[in-house]
Design a protein around this nucleic acid. Structure first.
Lengths: 341, 341
DNA sequence: CTGAAAGCGCTTACAG
DNA sequence: CTGAAAGCGCTTACAG
């Protein structure tokens, strides 16, 4: 295909000048630049990124490590990242690393260990020391969105505060028998997203002087709609005193809880208030009160930061970790109300 | 970082031999190979893919053009593609090209026009002649999954047959007043997915001798849960004779229809049967009867085919287009039953 | 402002 | 089976 030599020949200049004219780096006379640009357009020349990477050491490619594609939050983040990257002229190389899968080692030890990306955005995963080390050695910045990695920059909402706010909303309405449908692993991994949210729930309950909860009012489930459905069915179907409100670990879990309530003939919000966390695009349709976060915007922001990290090279700039948590907002809809007396 | 020269020096061989030993191409004495491998492992050497691409002309990278990431079908396909690609040692470069967006031109004219990918998998989009031409000129195979492109290989279910089967299920149960919640653009674009499904509905109705439908029994909506909800609210809320069954264009639309029925106090399946198409992971929870397809498996298959296309080079092999449509299956659950007499 | 030359890190004929 | 050399397509000092 057309190479830069062809453009140079056609424009009657050297390859060096053609390169400078096209990249905009270095001084080139205006008339020369136009001539080169015309020649390039004529033969449909576009520089080979691989050849350029080889000499510049920059690939203009960012790797994204993400545990799920097909879950609302992650899908939104991914779309936000993609849009921002394309806008900046960068490619996005996708590494889907499901929890507990065997793909993970291969991705870190082989794919990411090569020099195919300039940086990595890790979404919702915690990286081990040795995983970061591989990238550090290659001088590849790592940015964590949500998860954590030793020594890496990090962007995240305050999950604990979000769950606390959700719980306080219910307390403020007058609820006292409040249950929490937590994400799986919440109790076992206190620093995971489900763990932090569970803590926020407990914080708020404790501050209100309410029993910080025997196990009875916290159940765990997969953070999906069917997960929430199954868990809520158990929680709400038990004979005996029922909670008057549920803090769901995520909006999807809340949707499942809503459906379980309906199946059991429990009126929402008359007999049961339900609040979620996330700001899922379906929340409005379900009338779900929730603490919103903005994953697409988070993805966009992650790209902004990572591009800065790439640009700064080795400058010991302050990490953006110091920044405040990402924004979050309580949106009240029809799934929560005062408890029926 | 470690380059192949370092490995060669450490192993006491030439770069050529080191390259051959590591790539497994060309003959190398077993003892030499082991020595080279040990040396590579010792200094953590991994070949730079960019340098290799430059000489081989292969990037071991496949581009995926996809209109949405965050919609169940597309997310599943993407995960399937990613898994298969990683398994084969290929990278996946993601190009999210939402319908009507301005990203599309940039992706085809710039990103895909470079030589960064060996092939392109286009999921659920129809490509214009000039879009394929760009890739053809660079000898990049294109595989369409779902959509179409002039001259490109194609993999797809038979959407028309799927909708026809869904409708026949209802007819077989004894329904005659059957409505269709179609996807937007169904009437305007007969060859789009919603268009084909609408046709399948009409085929079945006509074959049963039922009025092929004044506009009254077909409504269009976005192919999402809120879209289906809004459309079904209109459809079912009208005073007058109500349909006894609905063929939803997709499972998500069916979920929305279910929710609309519930809101209107219409019992499913007592007063209304609902069937979807897709086999969404939530279908079981909703008790939704549906015609399943298998997007993750489709993604896997797409990779298999595209890798074959890459390997064959310029051989005029038969395109896999000739193949049968991808598999599909009717799964009956609790959302459909005989109409109440 | 422009050009000749070197070199980024590989792989692949071509000899031996 | 192995090595020396050329070359993939760029960019970037270095001169001028």
């Amino acid at each position: 295909m057309a190479a830069i030599g062809d453009v140079a020949r056609l424009a009657g200049v050297s390859k060096a000048t053609a390169s400078r004219a096209l990249s905009g780096k270095g001084h080139v006379a205006d008339s020369t630049r136009r001539r080169v640009e015309r020649a390039a357009a004529e033969i449909g020349y576009i520089a080979s990124p691989d050849a350029a990477s080889l000499v510049t050491g920059r690939t203009k490619n960012v790797g994204v490590v993400i545990p799920f594609v097909n879950a609302w939050f992650f899908g939104e983040v991914l779309e936000g990242i993609e849009r921002a990257l394309i806008g900046a002229g960068y490619d996005l190389t996708l590494y889907n690393v499901p929890p507990g899968g065997d793909a993970r080692a291969k991705v870190f030890d082989f794919f990411l260990a090569r020099k195919r990306v300039d940086a990595v955005i890790a979404v919702g995963v915690d990286l081990a020391e040795h995983e970061v080390a591989v990238l550090d050695r290659r001088d590849k910045p790592v940015l964590c969105l949500g998860g954590r990695a030793p020594g890496a920059a990090r962007l995240a909402i305050d999950d604990r505060a979000a769950a606390q706010l959700a719980t306080e909303h219910l307390l403020h309405l007058g609820h006292t028998r409040i249950a929490h449908v937590a994400g799986s692993g919440a109790a076992a991994s206190p620093h995971s997203v489900p763990g932090e949210r569970r803590h926020g729930f407990l914080d708020a309950m404790a501050a209100a002087g309410l029993a910080p909860g025997g196990r009875s009012n916290i159940v765990e489930s997969a953070m999906t709609m069917p997960g929430g459905y199954a868990a809520a069915l158990q929680l709400l179907g038990q004979p005996g005193v029922r909670p008057t409100a549920v803090v769901a670990c995520s909006d999807e879990v809340a949707f499942g809880t809503l459906r379980a309530a309906e199946r059991l003939g429990i009126d929402v919000p008359g007999e049961l208030s339900v609040i979620g966390i996330d700001g899922h695009e379906y929340a409005e349709m379900f009338g779900l009160t929730t603490v919103e976060q903005y994953p697409e915007e988070q993805g966009r922001l992650a790209v902004e930061v990572v591009l800065r990290l790439i640009a700064r090279g080795d400058d010991p700039d302050p990490l953006p970790d110091s920044g405040a948590p990402l924004p979050t907002r309580l949106v009240v809809r029809s799934s929560t109300s005062r408890p029926r007396r």
